[in-house]
Amino acid sequence: MIIAKLKPFDEIKEMLEDYRKILVLGCGSCVAVCMAGGEKEAGLLTTQLQMAFELDKSGKTVETITILRQCDREYIEEVKEKLGQYDAILSIACGVGVQFTAEVLDGTKILLPGLNTTFLGATAEPGTWVERCLACGDCVLDETGGVCPVTMCSKSLMNGPCGGHEEGKCEVERTRDCGWVLIYERLKKLNKLDLLKTFKGPKNYGAVKRPDKIIHEAYQPVAVEKEEAKDKK
């Protein structure tokens, strides 16, 4: 899922300076799981802002709603009318959600980001999330025992490890595991160390054209047959 982190409170407050009627818009998917922008976090941030605005007597009001996903038009459409009632919408979805909500509202309302979107990751333990994929668009996990060299190696080496690893740790940051040692250990367990013998050519970093777009094969445009059936003539 997408992992994000709440921006510092002062920064958020500053962003809201010019607006009086504010809505905190939570997202109930990725960012809810990583405890950054779900219903609960939206509630906390809203309460915090309400108290802060009461303390500085600015007379601003803050309300909150959370929708299931801000990266899906149908969920935004459901609350579109309601969103129209506010001066500004502080979205605590990932950057995708903020942009997509803004796109649906099409310049009728300002969207402000409450989170810093950080990486694609997994839950290592409650409250801890770890990065695992850089969305390179050309996955090589089959060759590396399911450990991503692009992400887990600090230098994204395709034929590692480099000479800098020491006792399984990376030279870029000694507290970090060397990605290629992880790959070696995993392949050893899988009895597939052979895979390390094949040299991997340069990685195609052009596999993703940014900003990229994917159209499912079943949704490819089709030519609409307008002609009458010929055999009738």
Partner: peptide, 8 residues
């Protein structure tokens, strides 16, 4: 920390 943020 949340209280400190808002100045309480």
């Amino acid at each position: 920390k949340l209280l400190k943020d808002i100045g309480l």
